[in-house]
Design a binder for these strands. Sequence first.
DNA 1: TAAGTCCCTG
DNA 2: CAGGGACTTA
Length: 696
Amino acid sequence: MNPSLLDHSMHHFPSSTYPEDRAEHPPYFLHDNTYNSSTPPSSSRSSGGSLISMLLQKTIESEQILQESSAAYYHPDAHISFSALTSPRLVDHHSSTSSKSSSTTIEPLSPASQASTGASPNGAGSNQDWTLELGDRRQAKRARVENIIRGIAVSPPSPSVHCTDGETTPTSNLQSETMENKQENKRKQRVSQHQDLLTTGGASGKSTDEGHNLKKQLQTMQRLLGQLQARFIQIYEYQTESQEDVSDGTFSTGVMEDDHQSTWNKGYPETEVFMDPYSEFNNGGPLDRGHLGWKNHKLTDYIHSNPDKEDKLLADILKYELSRAVNSSVDSIFKNISHTLFKSPQLHIKDGGMVETDDETMFLSSHEPASSSTHVDSMSRLPPCSKSGMAQQLPEIQTEALSLVVQKPASMTRPCSLNLTVKRPLHFHQPSLLYNHPTDLQEDHQLLDNLKHNSFHHDTFGGLQCAPTTTGLPTPERVDLLWDPVKVKSKVTSRPPRSPQVHHPIATGHNVLLDSSCLPHVKMEYGSFQSMVKRTSYVLNEGLTTHHLKKAKLMFFYTRYPSSNVLTTFFSDVQLTRCIMSQLIKWFSNFREFYYIQMEKFARQARVEGVNSVRDVAVRRDSELFRALNMHYNKANDFQVPDRFLEVAEITLQEFYISISLARDSDPSWKKAIYKVISKLDSDVPAEFKAPPITT
DNA sequence: TAAGTCCCTG
DNA sequence: CAGGGACTTA
């Protein structure tokens, strides 16, 4: 049935981003000559201003038309016609109408045409008496309401000026549908609105004009809001009055909505209705003007065709537009504020990405994802997996408003101990988050000195866990070093690639900290020490830690080619996702790389030094080679390197010596034979390397 | 084709 | 040490 078709298309036109909703301009719109003759082409009228202004214009125009069409327009017969066409129950009583509507899709939908033809097409003569009376009463009330509205148009809308429960309940379905579609269309509208802002406010291109433009925009917004409020209140009042007037259940809103829903859910001959409304756009036509003009055209058509739904529709639209206008105003304000802040001379982005500013600006710059070049740099430094993880975490819709969105997990509020005198016990499972803490560095430095005198099997893990990656006292330089973007990179990327920032309940009891992957690694002043520690903690707690790295290095003394089984066994304290496993494999690949480079280097050196026999090629603990290897894999020297590793290293060196002596190195893949040999020399990793038990 | 590895770069 | 391209292998 055509009204339902109209309904459907009407309620879907804002959501045309969905391909299935891309309905072509319905033919009956094009044939609505009455409307077209009374209003100028929508394209010309919508040539300027934002959607909200166009909507206002449309609203005003429609109101003018409503007033011009006078009683005929508001004649209840229009409702009757619509209801008859919409409600299956009423179709039986108005078979002529239904049959006509099935053949033609034009006349019953045009309110003006209905006004010209009266109620006769509906065959509603039996209802004429009371409907006329109802129309008179409605007109009188309308006049009253208009007077009231004129008085309160400038006053802010009361919170109660929203849909009452009685109103929203029966139309919840419709409204949810409508709002859903509107929200879907919101992005499109924002685009055009933003473009308008750019063409108007941003046309000057000077920062000095931005405040003026912003002020003008705000004033315009306020004015539009006032108009919208007035119009909305008017519609609301009118609707309330209408509902009170129409006592007959047939014309009550509930029935109307039931009818509407019944037809709504029935499904429609989509081939008739769903033609592409964005054919202009798809065919390369004007995106904004033409499309919006078409939408306005369609909207007004709908309003005129369905006077009984006009109030509700406009109420929905105005409610939506009101909220949207407010949101847009707030957005624009904050956009300008943030933009101004980043362009303000008080803020300097130094080399290395350090932001020198006050706390508030730092807050913005540290969390503003879009406006800060620092963030872009840090983003570019993040591994792809980090970016993808961020993409998963941060919906695209959030990209605009993130300047005010700050994640503050519980760990952020946890006070970070700066007590230098507190000694941690050598528990294996001290939260690793503290190990890059400068105070902990100092502490670990002391611990390391103690550990150096302990045997491996008793205290190596303690030393392993507590040994800092670097030693030294906490100084501002160290803090800067820690937060040097380049240096931070490795720490950041040391977390599992493509790990979607899900919190890993690590078996070691390591605290799962905040997901701050979106935080730019801004080189911070020493005053931001505490937050730095927190972020550092996060980085270290995400997946593999520096302790895992050190452990892996020590494991390399036993196995150069650890199987995934070994890795799983000895890194069971980490949630061994695919990414973490890849990272572990990459670690050992890097270890091997360094190992073989050293082997080749010393093998060639041996040849240069005149070593004539492979028997003279040996690796001892006082060898240069061993020192180099030990420095790399056991930098703290707190681990007793097993003799087996010396044997393997010696064999490797001999293999390289032989290959070089035999000039096998001319073969591009000459090392592969050596790799194959060395890979068979792996030994079991001591059980002490296995995932440690959780200590208290 | 996916996983693993090598090799190079930063 | 990570990233990534090239290459190999199952």
